[in-house]
Design a binder for these strands. Structure first.
Lengths: 237, 237
DNA sequence: AAAAAAAGGTGATATATATCATATAAATAA
DNA sequence: TTATTTATATGATATATATCACCTTTTTTT
């Protein structure tokens, strides 16, 4: 019987079913569990910086992490928001490159760290797992292609509307026929997701509010008219 | 001894050393060679369309292929230009998704097709090869993150200057202290790479020419001042 | 609680670039 | 060759959005 010095063992981890570890055989889960390290992080903390060398992967147990790049003008482009079950840093690890982005905690998080060798060994000893990871990498490429195309071909208004819909999908809480985005983001961060200036986000949000598409409740945004936003976003699905 | 019905066997393929197949063991190379299919393609032909199902991977022996997405406004966003040694379609295959982009021949090409099962089997039977492929996928993600950040944070002028430098790196032929981009691209295609309107590319190229950064020789662009373009592109390296 | 800092908000303004129109040049077809 | 289509070029114009300035509100620090 293996010992599990670092809090909850992976075998019992509630976020595992959302992760790439979900259908790993028991033996390998235990092995990873033995070598992992669970750390609590507070909002604002940096998990890793762009340009530094990855020493393992992170697996999010709870909380939200923003993955971003700092452009030459100093602004942040947020690549995506990661949450429960998401892996971080495995692309850099597998790419044998330094981190291509930085990661900062957006909502207090518990995150496991799995050292490089342990992770790589699981891949090499379990082709099905490796394939699952490759599938995830591949999927990510398609997502990025879409983001690039949107960035060059859509207006800021369209992109903001679309970002709100996505945030609703990921962090939405239904209530009163509306959907509240249950995640605190500054206007600057929303601008970083959309890829625009903070003032533009503020102005457009006011406009959306005036047009009864959204409502502002403190820092949180409530989506009142999903179809309206979808129409605005030029996203028909 | 295995038979090689489809032209040059991979063992003797001159473009292999540039590809992910470069350090595959002899036995596996031969196996792939037995199942591959070499096809010649003319400029303008479509290799595959976005949204269709991948049945294998393509390996470019010669020629140039543009990989692009068609935006909702009908414009093409060119994701990248692929050339000798590049693999196409393996992300969709590994992602178990339909193609996220389309591929069109830009310069007459010879391209091998390797059926899905043959490719997947080589991966599963050779973890080192799998790792190499995963490395390539991972690298691609980092590249896309950079492109996204550039698209949202840099001006068209900066991006065009940078694209010209890149085209020079990939397709440049030195001569008379200058560098000729030896690839025929329409202004519309350059616009598709940069992510802008055709007229903007035409105007900016005229400007660059006036500023003695480039020269136009028929359809081809000659780079006269790399440092000048680098300065303009906000890319210091 | 007071002070300081950070975030949110709004107006004024500048400007890069998209769009539309039209002309010329080049490539392709008849 | 001539005709037709396509690509390149340039001007005029509109406009979305970045930038700057300033104010208010909220949050954090002391």
């Amino acid at each position: 019987m293996s010992s599990h010095p670092h809090n909850t063992p992976c075998e019992l981890c509630s976020s595992r079913k959302f992760s790439l570890f979900s259908d790993l055989p028991e033996a390998q889960i235990c092995n990873i569990s033995d070598h992992k390290n669970l750390i609590s992080h507070r909002k604002g903390q940096i998990l890793y910086y762009e340009g530094t060398k990855p020493l393992g992967i992170f697996c999010i147990n709870s909380g939200v992490v923003k993955i971003y790049k700092t452009a030459s003008n100093g602004k942040e482009q947020i690549i995506h928001l990661a949450q429960r079950g998401d892996f971080l840093g495995y692309a850099a690890l597998l790419g044998e490159e330094n981190y291509s982005n930085s990661a900062m905690i957006l909502e207090d998080a518990k995150i496991c760290f799995v050292p490089k060798e342990v992770f790589i060994n699981s891949l090499l000893h379990n082709p099905q797992f490796f394939r699952r990871v490759a599938k995830s990498l591949s999927h990510e490429i398609g997502v990025m292609e879409g983001k690039l195309t949107d960035a060059t071909q859509k207006s800021i208004r369209e992109r903001l509307a679309y970002v709100l819909l996505q945030l609703g999908n990921s962090y939405g809480v239904e209530g009163g026929g509306n959907q509240k985005i249950d995640l605190i983001l500054s206007r600057e961060e929303i601008a970083g997701i959309v890829g625009t200036a903070t003032e533009s986000v503020i102005r457009l949000l006011s406009e959306f509010k005036k047009d009864n598409l959204i409502e502002l409740e403190g820092k949180k945004i409530i989506i009142k008219d999903r179809r309206g936003l979808a129409r605005l976003s030029d996203f028909y699905a």
